[in-house]
Design a protein around this nucleic acid. Structure first.
Lengths: 136, 136
DNA sequence: CTTGACCCTGTAGTAACTACAGGCTTTATG
DNA sequence: CATAAAGCCTGTAGTTACTACAGGGTCAAG
């Protein structure tokens, strides 16, 4: 009753790719599971929760190392939250930096796309990359 | 007079890391330069232009493969611009997708950071990852 | 003449997977 | 009952775009 999921089932339940689960085990993000006589991995409910935790962390853009720390903290509810707060703050700043960079790219690309050109000689994208003046 | 830059000078002039220049050569993004007797690479003005073109492309977020295509197009001004327009459009869409994803992350992270917690048990980030209800 | 700056090749490491190759086991179907 | 499909196993290599050495040669200045 306790170890009722095979890796395929766990993959479906958690939304994490099967090969990714084995990868997480290899890098010690997940504990090694029990094995049945045939060598198959078997998991329980807590593995699902853990994997979902990891998946949500990845969806928020945290790296594996950060998630490892967060799993540690989640396992010790008495610990201060300071470290997690710090991770969130730092990560938020990184995300905002990336947004800023992408918005700058978007602005240039939008201008380029807005103007149809005919030949490579007067192609806006290529002109931009050559840093010659653009069609405005 | 023609081949007057060493790789270090080229690096400074183009704003591209020296090791990256050698890497670009290895993956055939840059042509192999002349070598002087001692085996040193020597470059001319056109190499600077080409590297700057590449750098600007990278700054706009294009991948190496796309830049390779764009360099081809830039070398053939009589070619239609259609392919470049297409690349720009596709890339713009990718950039906008990334922005959307990052904005979603930012929104969640901002909420998490806004609320100071004390212990991991009531830590907003960890609660979010556990998908228990948050402090609002 | 030696020290520091510059150049060379080639390999390995980074992040987080993904994709096989090659080979078992288990389950479903005829 | 045989066989085929689905599922599992290990281990390695590939992806992107660099970056960081290790180990070694060359060149200019004091």
């Amino acid at each position: 009753m306790l170890e009722k999921y095979t890796i395929g089932t766990l993959s479906r339940e958690s939304g994490v790719n099967l090969e990714t689960i084995r990868y997480y085990e290899k890098i010690s993000l997940l504990n090694k599971p029990e094995r049945s006589g045939n060598g198959y991995r078997h998991y329980n409910e807590s593995a699902i929760k853990r994997l979902r935790f990891i998946r949500r962390g990845r969806e928020l853009g945290f790296g594996i190392a950060e998630i490892k720390t967060l799993l540690e903290l989640a396992d010790h509810p008495e610990h201060p939250c300071k470290e997690a707060d710090q991770l969130a703050q730092t990560h938020l700043t990184e995300v905002e930096t990336k947004i800023k960079d992408l918005l700058a790219m978007q602005e240039v690309l939008t201008k380029i796309v807005a103007c149809q050109s005919h030949s490579a000689e007067h192609c806006r994208l290529i002109e931009t990359l050559n840093q010659r003046s653009c069609c405005n």
